[in-house]
């Protein structure tokens, strides 16, 4: 097992937890934002999961599936929750295997061009990106007096019994 499995499993748990929390918000709450973040709650959670779709696709070497979350078309947060769960399953299986960290991964960008990046940098970016946008959601909730769900790695560890 790779030692990356721990932060990857944490990312899965935290992203699913935030997506479920956002889905349960009212439309007005989903439209909230705060200065300095990327946008509204809804746009941020769609981007969070949409980017995870693209990291998974690059690692698989295939385009995202037809039902992938996309910033340009996805509106239904129930679908975002469902896809977050599917992506968790995929990343869990991926992290179980031996990782070819120096393998060059082809990554397709929005403008149609392709970048070649080492797997280890792509995975580092995947983990950074999840933490970054979950933190932005936490700031938006805090700015508007909404108690966010607990989503630190310590909370995850407590839920698993890894932290007592």
């Amino acid at each position: 097992m790779s030692d990356l499995k721990v932060p990857i499993e944490y990312d899965n748990w935290a992203t699913e937890r935030l997506a479920q929390f956002c889905e349960a918000l009212s439309p007005d709450q989903r439209a909230l934002t705060t200065p300095g973040t990327m946008g509204t709650v809804e746009a941020t959670v769609i981007h969070l999961v949409g980017a995870k779709e693209r990291y998974a696709a690059a690692l698989r070497g295939t385009p995202p599936p037809d039902d992938a979350v996309r910033e340009t078309t996805t509106k239904d947060l129930g679908h975002v929750v469902a896809r977050a769960k599917k992506l968790s399953e995929w990343f869990s299986g991926f992290a179980q295997g031996e990782l070819e960290l120096e393998k060059i991964i082809e990554r397709r960008l929005a403008d149609g061009t392709t970048q070649r990046v080492p797997m280890e940098i792509l995975l580092t970016q995947h983990l950074h990106h999840g933490n970054e946008h979950r933190a932005q959601l936490g700031s938006i909730f805090g700015a508007h007096g909404i108690e966010p769900p607990h989503f630190s790695a310590f909370d995850w560890g407590r839920e698993r019994g890894d932290l007592t």
Partner: peptide, 20 residues
């Protein structure tokens, strides 16, 4: 008590969270 892995994951989460 905690596993080492959870503390490493927390360090990474915590760093990204507060830098953000």
């Amino acid at each position: 008590t905690s596993t080492v892995g959870v503390i490493l994951a927390q360090l990474v989460h915590h760093g990204n969270e507060h830098r953000t």
